[in-house]
Every structure is written in C-alpha cells, then in structure tokens.
C-alpha cells in the first residue's frame, strides 16, 4: 500500500467532510440558533440541552447509537437505504450525519450567543423600510453577527477535522470513503508506523493551531474595531 497516497486521500477526504459538514451545519444551525435565541418555551430548553449533548457525551456513545440507528433493520438506516439506495454506515454520507450531530453545539452556541446580543429593534426598522425576511437576514443579521458566524464556521470546521471517536465507530476505515486523517493516524500508530504518524499528527496540530489563531485574531481585530457581535 502506498502510504503517502493514502494519507493525501485521507487529507482531502477530511477537508471535504469538514467542508460539507460546515455548510450543512450553518444551514441547520442558523435557524435553530435563531429560534433558540428567541424562544421562551420550556421545549426550547430541551432542544438546547439536546444540541449541547455532544459537548459532554463521549463520541463513542454517539457513534454506538448511530451505528445502531444506521442499521438497515432500523428506521433511519432503512429509510436512507430506500431513499438513496445506499446504506449510511461506512459511507461518506454516514460520516456527514455523524459529524453534523457531533459538531452541532460548536456551531449553534456561538450563533445563539450572537443572536441573543443582536438588537431586534433594528429588524423592525428594516421592516418598515420594506425589507423582507431574507433581505433582513442577509443585510442585517449576517453582517451584524458576522463574528458569531465566523466563529461558528471555524469551530464547526475545526471540530469536524479533529473528529475521531464517532468516525471510528461508524466509519469502517475505508480509504477514500471513511478513512479520515485522525483514523489514518490511529492506524499508523497501531501499525507502529511512527514516521507517518508524526507527519499526520504534526500536520493536524499545525492546522488546528492556525485555525484558532485565525479565530482569535479575527475576534481581537473586530473587538478593537466597530462594535460588532
């Protein structure tokens, strides 16, 4: 097996997984966070707690339940199989589902916090000026909470990059399909191939560090500039 080639495959697969997951998370997370930031119902607390669960649950718990849910014997697995003709377990789609669940709090919480600090009176003002829902979202909410959006996207991306436990449980270690960087790294370590392991581990470390520098730098810059959320 050409390890170098498989590592590059794993790298691109991981980036692809993180990108797809982040896009989906922003699409799901923004309305969810908006609702959570505005709702006063008790039900919202339950949803909030559900969203936050991956923060404290071991990834293996999520992975274990997902593996069961993905089984064609169960509702999720069978519906997906009927809809797409593909099973969820051991596929890229399955990893996306797992990553979305696993990284959801990292996207929802910064957004929710940003939305909570957003001045809703501005929306009323825009409404009187003829701005519709999408118009207000694109031209007021996003620019005024762009720090929250950037934080959410970066954290969602970085957290998905570093995902291991869930993928280990539902991935099946298939090169090009489910063998992400962290799994490839684990594989190298288990096979005592420390040279390759160092490359991957070091690369992940530098990448994660760079992402966080970017995040903190962005926040610091915005803090010193105009008042933004």
């Amino acid at each position: 097996m050409n390890l170098l080639a498989s590592d590059i495959t794993a790298l691109f697969l991981t980036l692809q997984l993180a990108a797809v997951t982040t896009v989906i998370l922003m699409a799901i997370g923004a309305p969810l966070a908006w609702w959570l930031s505005r709702s006063t119902s008790r039900f919202a607390s339950v949803i909030e707690a559900t969203v936050a669960l991956p923060l404290i649950l071991p990834p293996t718990v999520i992975g274990f339940y997902l593996l069961i849910a993905f089984s064609p014997d169960n509702f999720l697995g069978s519906s997906w199989l009927t809809l797409t003709g593909q099973p969820l377990a051991f596929t890229f789609s399955g990893l996306v589902v797992g990553s979305v669940i696993y990284s959801l709090p990292f996207v929802v919480q910064p957004l929710q916090s940003g939305f909570q600090h957003f001045d809703h009176k501005l929306l009323e003002a825009a409404e009187t000026m003829g701005a519709g829902t999408l118009d207000r979202f694109l031209n007021l909410i996003i620019p005024l909470t762009r720090r929250a959006f950037a934080t959410a996207a970066l954290l969602g991306f970085a957290h998905t990059m570093g995902e291991f436990g869930v993928v280990l449980m539902i991935g099946g270690n298939i090169p090009g399909e489910t063998q992400v960087l962290s799994i490839a790294l684990y594989d190298h370590v288990e096979a005592l191939d420390y040279g390759r392991a160092h490359w991957l581990a070091g690369g992940l470390l530098v990448f994660s560090f760079a992402l966080l520098i970017l995040l903190y730098g962005f926040n610091r810059h915005k803090k010193s500039g105009a008042k933004q959320l």
């Binding site: 009176k121 501005l122 009323e124 003002a125 825009a126 409404e127 009187t128 000026m129 003829g130 701005a131 519709g132 007021l140 620019p143 005024l144 105009a226 008042k227 933004q228």
Partner: peptide, 18 residues
Amino acid sequence: VKQRQLGYVFQEDRLFPH
C-alpha cells in the same frame, strides 16, 4: 409591515451600526 409604504422614525434612532 414591509408593504405599507410608511416611514417610521422610532424613539431610539435604530440606525444600523454596521
């Protein structure tokens, strides 16, 4: 609201800070 075509000046200025 958006179709009523009325101008509204609020008590607070409600200018868009960005």
